[in-house]
Simulated assay, not measured.
Amino acid sequence: MQSEDLLLLVTRKMPYGKYEGRIMADLPGHYLAWFAREGFPQGEIGRLLEIMYEIDHNNLRDLLTPLRSNLTRPFAK
């Protein structure tokens, strides 16, 4: 995992499936657990789903809060 992946979790939308259009960081835990059981897809989406699953499974969703708040205000120069 790289730090850029965390930013992608709060900006990238799920491209397909039951939760299409939802921000990856907002996907419910049961949906992430389903992927963990059935297998994560290949590529970037699969990698992000796997990271989000680990964050959710370990009850670490609050780690994404500062990234979300940075999106609502301009970055300092």
Rank of each mutant, 00 (worst) to 15 (best):
D5W: 04
L6Q: 04
R68Y: 01
M24F: 04
K77G: 15
G29I: 11
D26C: 11
E50P: 04
Y19M: 02
K13E: 13
F75P: 14
I45Q: 03
P28C: 07
E50C: 13
E4D: 07
V10K: 01
E44V: 10
L67C: 08
K18L: 15
P28G: 02
L27R: 01
G29F: 11
P15T: 00
D62W: 12
L9S: 08
L27Y: 00
Q2V: 08
K13Q: 11
R37H: 09
L63R: 10
E4A: 11
D5L: 12
D62C: 15
W34C: 01
M14E: 09
A25G: 04
R22H: 13
L63H: 10
G39D: 13
L8K: 07
G39M: 05
Q42V: 13
L71V: 11
W34N: 02
P15L: 01
N70Q: 12
V10R: 00
F35S: 11
E50Y: 05
L60G: 15
E54G: 08
T11H: 03
A76R: 12
K13G: 08
A25S: 07
G43I: 02
F35N: 05
L71H: 09
T65A: 15
L71K: 12
D56M: 14
K77M: 07
L67M: 12
L64Q: 01
L32M: 06
F40V: 04
I55C: 08
N59L: 09
N58H: 15
D26L: 09
M24H: 01
F40I: 04
R68I: 00
R68V: 00
A25Q: 04
H30G: 05
M14I: 11
N59T: 12
F35P: 03
Q42A: 07
N58L: 08
A36M: 11
I55H: 06
E20M: 13
M52V: 03
G21W: 13
M52S: 12
H57C: 13
G39F: 08
R61T: 11
I45E: 14
P66E: 13
A36C: 05
W34Q: 03
N58G: 14
M52I: 11
M14G: 00
S3D: 14
P66R: 09
P66V: 15
A25E: 02
N58K: 12
K18N: 07
A76M: 09
L32P: 00
G21T: 01
L60W: 11
S3A: 13
N59P: 14
R12F: 04
P15V: 00
